[in-house]
Design a protein around this nucleic acid. Sequence first.
DNA 1: ACTCAGGTATTAC
DNA 2: GTAATACCTGAG
Length: 288
Amino acid sequence: MKEQQYILENIDTFELKDIFDCGQCFRWNEQEDGSYTGIFKKNVINVKKEKNKIIFNGVCQKNIRETVEDYFDLNRDYEKIKQQLSKIDNNIKTSIQYGKGIRLLNQDLWETIISFIISANNNIPRIKGIIERLAKQFGYEIIYKGQKYYTFPTPEQLKNVTIEDYRKLGLGFRDVRLYETTKMILEGKINLEKMKKNPNTMQVREELLTLSGVGPKVADCILLFSDLKRFEVFPIDVWVRRVMNDLYIKNEDETKVSKKLIEKIAAERFGDLAGLAQQYLFYWRREA
DNA sequence: ACTCAGGTATTAC
DNA sequence: GTAATACCTGAG
């Protein structure tokens, strides 16, 4: 595959740090020049921002422009969404000003499922390390600018991998979950392509919950961060619980606040944009 | 040595 | 249904 380039000019919502550090992805890394390089599907892309230009460079299976338009969700009007959310209250407005450049990526559903199973009760450096080792061991190699990159392994590529193999990669207790979920998908008990076509988000959520290692939080992350792109869900992790309690509930012990209450407040306030609201609040509380 | 990190599964009321 | 508890691993 040969290198391609695509330059995008005058886009309002696009900050590299906001997009890649807001917690939605694990395979983008900052380079010495401030650009980011990442791998998704069979594409390796470097993204650089210069003034009002976004420069995409990389090796793609298809046309780089179409590839990044889809992956970076370029056809959605984030300015409009931010305007709508900012009107709701000053808290969300502040968080949006902080994470003004966030866009939610259309990440491969299978990769998102496995990545967020790995994320459970884990920390980011370790999650990234595990995913890289998985890819290096079982994915395809792609060369870009003389460097080796490895694609995220497909279900087929994990077909004969044992629980012990996973344990050796540092998966910990998540080894069985990865093994069983992969098996369920390979056996067709869960059909990912069908899932994408199902407009009933709650039905899809129930289906995701049958996968080993997928609980409520992971299911919501998958719904929001994969190419399922369901913006009405509201993943609740420790940070979101913290920020929601600080802003709207003010219980003296945040760990005692029920998920139900948080979900209710989120749905009432943010409606079908709850997912994006969650992302601004999460990023703000965690990084600011 | 001990706690903590993007939760889930299991078990016990 | 809701609450308590164990769980790999490695960095601080």
